[in-house]
Nucleic acid binder design. Sequence first.
DNA 1: ATGTTATTTGCAATTGAATTGCAATAAGGT
DNA 2: ACCTTATTGCAATTCAATTGCAAATAACAT
Lengths: 142, 142
Amino acid sequence: MLASQTVIKKGLQETGRRMTKTRQAVLVLLERTRQPLSAAEICDQLHEEKVSIDLVTVYRTLHVLKELGLIVQLDLHQEGQSRYEMKAGRQHHHHIRCQDCGRIVDLLLCPLKKITKLIEQRTQFIVDDHTLEFTGLCPKCQ
Amino acid sequence: MLASQTVIKKGLQETGRRMTKTRQAVLVLLERTRQPLSAAEICDQLHEEKVSIDLVTVYRTLHVLKELGLIVQLDLHQEGQSRYEMKAGRQHHHHIRCQDCGRIVDLLLCPLKKITKLIEQRTQFIVDDHTLEFTGLCPKCQ
DNA sequence: ATGTTATTTGCAATTGAATTGCAATAAGGT
DNA sequence: ACCTTATTGCAATTCAATTGCAAATAACAT
């Protein structure tokens, strides 16, 4: 078991939850996959690896992992399904998606710190979060 | 009929389409509504105004209006449904949504011009579009 | 005005993502 | 190893959105 897994197990137990084979399988897959994955993709990939898991369980696992703050849910524009990626140990970032082939690339930047303060001043909202996504054509699809 | 409606009618006819009562009703509603509306909300509102329209027709109308570039489709994070707002005559902008009451406020700014160029250099993508949304607590819900 | 034709509409049925109920299964403390 | 409680899998359901098709209607010609 990876070191991060021990931390995660603790996090689960502190909220009266258990570390199970399926949760571990989902975690390991998310940890080693670069692209953000949908629930269906996670399910399919695990089946290919001969891990027995139901799509419902994938959804429930993702829900728990999100609640523990271990993963991030992405609702990319016009994708019609959510994608998920590990949060632990990674810096806050955004994405760009190719509208042709669907490839998603990480953008290791966030230009919104100053803007957030400006928005709080202007709107009197307390800003909690933001989503930012770019779409376009990747080098291969141009 | 509003002046903008004539322009829209022309746009429809140029693509072999027709200006109908229902399309006009959806347009008029979108033109006078400040909040971005969902298809269901448009349908309900029109029913309250004694306009007979089916939800399917609303979806199809929105599809056409979007294709003509007259409206913008918003897929707000975790809303589970798209919202639409008029594009014609309005400057490009983004939104902030209250996570408590759901209120959506326009942000009349876009801080992404320079960033877009940087991203194109770094990723070799040709950037076509972006989505940006903030969430937080509005003054009333704090 | 009237008729013709292609577009649009409404209804029913369907799709696809995500959720819920419930009995069977498995984790973890004793 | 046992017992309690969380978790899983399956079936059924929800909800947004789409599709097929016959009936209605807009645009155009006569």
